[in-house]
Structure formats: C-alpha cells, structure tokens
Design a protein around this nucleic acid. Structure first.
Lengths: 160, 160
DNA sequence: TTGACACTTACCCTTAGGGCAAGGTTTAGC
DNA sequence: GCTAAACCTTGCCCTAAGGGTAAGTGTCAA
C-alpha cells in the first residue's frame, strides 16, 4: 500500500487546478501521468503533486507553459536550470517595467480625456457620419504609441 | 470625378493599418466597404478613412473591437454614445489601476526572488525528482493571487 | 503577351485553458 | 443484479486581434 496512486481529480484537488488544466499541461509536455489503468484512466503519484505545484509556482512568477517546459528540459538534460531562471526573472522584471509604464500612460490618458469630455458640452445631435465627438477629438499623434498591450475589461453592462 | 474611391490598400495606407486588419474589422462588423467592383474588389470612400481612424483612436484608449462596435450601434440607433463612452472610460481607468497593481506586485516579487536566489548558493546537483530549487522554494501562499494577467515576454534566447 | 503586383477567400497559428458532447467506467443504493 | 450518479475518456469549438501562407483571379505597363 505504499503504492497509492491518484486519479486525475484527486491530483487536481491536491494541486488546486482543474482536471482540464492537467490534461492541457499533459498535451504541452509538462506533466505526463505515471501510467494508465486497463480502462485508460490516468494514474498519478505524489511526485506529480509536487510537479504540479512547481508549475503553479512558476506561473505565479509570470512564466509561460513553454518557458516552464524549457526549464524542465534543462533539468532533465543535465544541470540545474537555476542560473537560467534567475536570468529570466531579471528579464521579466525589466519587461514588466515597460509594460507597467505603458499601462500607466494609458490610465493617465484615459482619466485626462474623461475629465475633459465631462466638462465639455456634447451635442447629442449627430451628423450623418459622426459617431462620437469625444473619441473623434483625439489627435492623431496619440496613435503613435498605441498601447497594444491589453484588453483592460472594465465593467460591461448596458449603455442606453 | 468627385466620386474618388479607394482600394483596400489605399485605405490601409491612409489609416495606418494593414489590409488584413481592414478585412478583420469588416468581419467584426466595424467597417463595411462602400461597395465592390464588378471583379469583387472592395471600394472605400473618404468617410471610411475617418471611420478607420476613429477605430484606431478608440483602440488607443483600450477599447476592444466589440466595444467599438457597441459604440457604433449606439450611434446608429439614435443618440450620441458619448455619455456611455465617458462612463466606460472611467471604468477602464479603474480596471487599469487594479491591473497595474497586480503587475507591480509581480515585478516586486520577481525582483525580490531574483536577489534572494542570486545570494544563495545553488547546488547544481539535482535529486531525481528535483527541477529547480529556486522556484520550488516559493511558498504555496504565494499562489493565492497568482497574477493571472499577462505573459510578460521577457527576452528569450537560449539557456545553456 | 508576359511579368509584377494587387486583390479575393480560406485555413492555420498564437495563451491557457473553459465548455460541451458522446460514449465508456465505477460506485453506491436498492 | 440493476440502475442512477459521479467519474473518466477523446474530440471539437471558443476566446482577441490580427499575422502568415496558399491558391486562384484581376490589373497594369512594357
């Protein structure tokens, strides 16, 4: 009985992810089961719990699944990937800095326009091809560095 | 000859986007051509240039294509969508604030771990199931608010 | 007429899974 | 033993905003 194995649901519960996620990780070469039952059910061991948690930890630092697989590849081929991981962490932090700046710029622009638009009186009568004078008033120069970076997803309900 | 129309490439050039983008916008219901030639080529007018620029301006504020279509729907159905746009801008700015906080947290964690890992001596000999003691040392508590927010995309070259 | 481009549709690709469907398996209650 | 619930399997379509490529057609100038 030291041979206790886990079903995919049990592993999912222990690792704090969904079964779908575990199957996806498997297709990405990150977490193959220890084996299958005669009825083709996946079977995992306790080391799989650790590996799943490892993946979650790496994800929490912003590593993608492809990068995590790369880490596993390094570890399997020979040496500890720690040096590479440390380097990547630095690069990621730097990239984040740029990304944060972009988002802050966007937020500032958004707030600035919102205040300006709120102060102006808007003509609720539109010309034939007009849509929204607020947005139309944005200067073309602002399109240079269009923050091609995120969806933002503010609340979305109705707009009547 | 006041009837000058534009090919898709000309519109793309004037609007500063790719022809692929224009076709994509069309499939999303944002920018249908004025008509087609007898050989099925799209034909646009100068008002399409304005509309394309409008879409770019809205995108530069973080609006998605679905939201922009919603703005067009409002404008077509009756009233100026400016009120809704102003409201959405506020919501977006607020959502951005949260997003920025997440990224800053991530950056701080990344830098903190990087410094810690650099200071520690890493045993470049791995146990059988071990992968990377750096990442493995992350406490499970850190997985609570796993910043499910962005890929980050730091430089990626090699890692030997 | 032919070569160089422009235009058309259509299909696959990107992240990290979510959702659903159709079918097989296991377990608990009766 | 039977049946229903819960579990497992694979497979397919979906997300945002296009990029890349391919195959077929159109246009223009030399």
């Amino acid at each position: 009985m030291g041979e206790r194995t886990l079903s995919i649901r049990q592993l999912a519960q222990e690792a704090g992810v969904s079964t779908k996620t575990l199957r996806h990780w498997e297709t990405q070469g990150l977490l193959a089961p220890a084996g299958r039952t005669h009825t083709n059910y996946r079977r995992y061991t306790k080391t799989h719990v650790e590996r799943a948690l490892f993946i979650r930890k790496a994800q929490s630092l912003g590593f993608t699944l492809a990068e995590i697989r790369h880490i596993f590849d390094l570890a399997r081929s020979q040496k500890a990937p720690c040096d590479a991981v440390i380097r990547w962490a630095g690069e990621k932090a730097q990239a984040l800095e740029g990304q944060i700046r972009l988002l802050q710029d966007l937020r500032v622009r958004l707030e600035r326009y919102r205040r300006r638009w709120s102060a102006e009186k808007k003509p609720s009568r539109l010309g034939p091809t007009e849509v929204c004078q607020c947005i139309a008033s944005i200067p073309i120069q602002d399109l240079r560095a269009a923050s091609r970076s995120l969806p933002v997803r503010g609340g979305e309900k109705d707009g009547s």
